[in-house]
């Protein structure tokens, strides 16, 4: 049954794609941590890992997109699913971009802010994980989507609060303004990961309503 085989192949590819995004979140978290702890070799390795994860995710989403179109699969939800995959792909893109910026710009983060940065990266990674789980639930267990969506919302708000506090702290420090702006841009960069997870959640909320049989 070639048709059924195609369906299974795409199912596997979507699962693999979501695994990749999820791994991307973990690698991002570790990458930020290694940078802050100045463990260069591990940080470099995370940069290369997230690079390959990002290109793997790109390939997988492109493949899924092509097959959904050529086989005319899930006509009613094709648009939603493709937009969801695209938003998930954006999370890993931004995570990769953030780690690369750490490597390129080498921000001089004061030691007392390390814990905040790690917390910020962890909360962003949690938001990513919850967004991935919600997307997975959308594919196979629609009733569980909301259980994960509220987590995305929760972590995104946590990140917002934390970043606000961190930015306030940065601008209260007795350092050069250029440095303040530089540090603040990195808070924003890490915050962007959870914002992108939030976009996934918003899309999912609408698609879930549409996906009532």
């Amino acid at each position: 049954m070639p048709f059924f085989k195609t369906t299974k192949v795409i199912e596997t590819q979507i699962d693999e794609f979501l695994d990749t995004v999820s791994q991307g979140g973990l690698v991002f978290k570790q990458g930020v941590k290694y940078y802050l702890e100045d463990i260069t070799a591990d940080f470099e390795e995370r940069i290369s890992t997230i690079g390959s994860l990002e290109s793997k995710a790109d390939d997988l989403s492109r493949n899924v997109e092509a097959q959904l179109y050529t086989q005319s699969l899930i006509p009613e939800h094709r648009g939603d699913v493709l937009r969801l995959l695209e938003s998930n792909d954006n999370i890993i893109d931004i995570s990769k971009h953030a780690l690369n910026q750490f490597a390129i710009e080498q921000p001089a983060i004061p030691k007392e802010m390390n814990a905040d940065f790690i917390n910020l990266a962890e909360a962003s990674a949690e938001a990513t994980e919850a967004a991935v789980l919600a997307t997975r639930a959308f594919m196979r267990n629609i009733t569980a989507v909301n259980d994960h969506l509220h987590k995305v919302d929760y972590y995104e708000k946590e990140v917002d609060k934390l970043s606000f506090r961190m930015k306030k702290h940065i601008f209260s420090l007795d350092i050069d303004l250029a440095l303040k702006i530089h540090l603040s841009s990195f808070v924003r960069l890490v915050e962007l990961v959870s914002d992108t997870a939030q976009v996934v959640a918003q899309r999912l909320a609408i698609s879930t309503i549409k996906r009532n049989i």
Binding site: F3, F4, I74, R140, N141, R211, I213
Partner: peptide
């Protein structure tokens, strides 16, 4: 419709598998 909806909620099919079976 009500029966199928109940069954789908119970058996949680993957979107693509449901698409295949419906087709």
């Amino acid at each position: 419709f009500l029966t199928i909806r109940m069954l789908l909620r119970r058996f949680q099919l993957h979107l693509l598998r449901m698409d295949f079976l419906t087709r």
